[in-house]
Design a protein around this nucleic acid. Structure first.
Lengths: 105, 105, 105, 105
DNA sequence: CCCGGCGTTAATGCAC
DNA sequence: GTGCATTAACGCCGGG
């Protein structure tokens, strides 16, 4: 994992910082530095976990494939289960309507 | 009633469709058949042409290869030039925006 | 619409149709049921976690917004830092390639 | 359309070109310049047309949408018609198999 | 000849 | 609902 230190000056990116240090909050260019730093770190941490999960999911599909499962079908199954049942039925019903309209029976 | 050259058998295909044939539009399952058919045909025709172009492009690469050119490098050149084009287009688009913003059109 | 009359409960639980129960695996239609179920559950579990993380991230942005931060700018910062990370990762990956190519591993 | 002149020196990108001009072919760095130029132009012309077709197709889908058609379903229809009939049946049959294996009836 | 990688293109989710 | 940013699907290629 690559760790990069956050520098408050980098974040606000202005030259002539009117830095105002009080007991409550450090402000740079009118921005609460610590608060911002915290937000950025929390977001990045969560996105990192999110990315890792995506990677894990991809691994499972690869595993499924190498076990002889049909990946596209498997994805289809997941997609169907994710949707509301009514939605699927609506979709398929509409597909039938269109296919009938085109004589694709 | 006007003559609309659509065969009911083509259209319907299933038993209980509430087909509604009027002077303006034939509807099957609430779908305007002629309109749908037209859309589908136009899309399919364009996709066919698109596919043919892809085939032509592949042929040229093959020709280049058999002429001794390094195909991967050739693809790289095309890609770079494409990026350049897009950069130029972005630039010009932005120029237009600014010119419009300044009433210079 | 293609409908095939197979009831999993019949096959797996009660009936003795084309069910093939061996010591190793229960198969339905040539599919290893337990394996498939396991894969689906693992994927769905991970996707659930992934979705939850997305929700958490959204919450943080909302929190940032209500703290007076400019959300779009904040997103921009995250994006820029992400690009930097990826550039670094690419660089390191390429370094690895070269090191391996030179037997420096 | 943006037109950019191709410069042979740009393409081969070497400084001290050992250019060899004969009656048959101009060679730069061992590359037949005119031939290469021709190939690049032909490819780019075809890709331009191809891109335009993609744009046209997207326009038709937009038109369909604004006419009240359900775009996703329409895409589904196109996809089905594009495939071999057996392929579709295979897919749907396999979907059924998997769904049955999971008891999703 | 298949298959895994890659570059492109469509689909999805999300914010405004 | 529209545009945008991410993510999945597709087509093409080279190697095993």
């Amino acid at each position: 994992m690559t760790t990069i230190e956050i520098n408050a000056d980098e974040i606000v990116g202005v030259g002539h910082n009117s830095k105002t240090k009080t007991a409550e909050a450090v402000q740079v260019g009118g921005v609460a530095v610590d608060r911002l730093r915290s937000l950025v770190e929390r977001i990045e941490r969560l996105e990192e976990e999110r990315k890792a999960l995506g990677s894990d999911i991809r691994d499972i599909y690869a595993e499924a494939k190498s076990s002889g499962f049909h990946v596209k079908v498997l994805r289809g199954i997941i997609a169907i289960r994710k949707q509301d049942f009514e939605t699927v039925e609506e979709y398929e019903a509409m597909m039938d309507v269109y296919r009938n309209a085109l004589g694709m029976n």
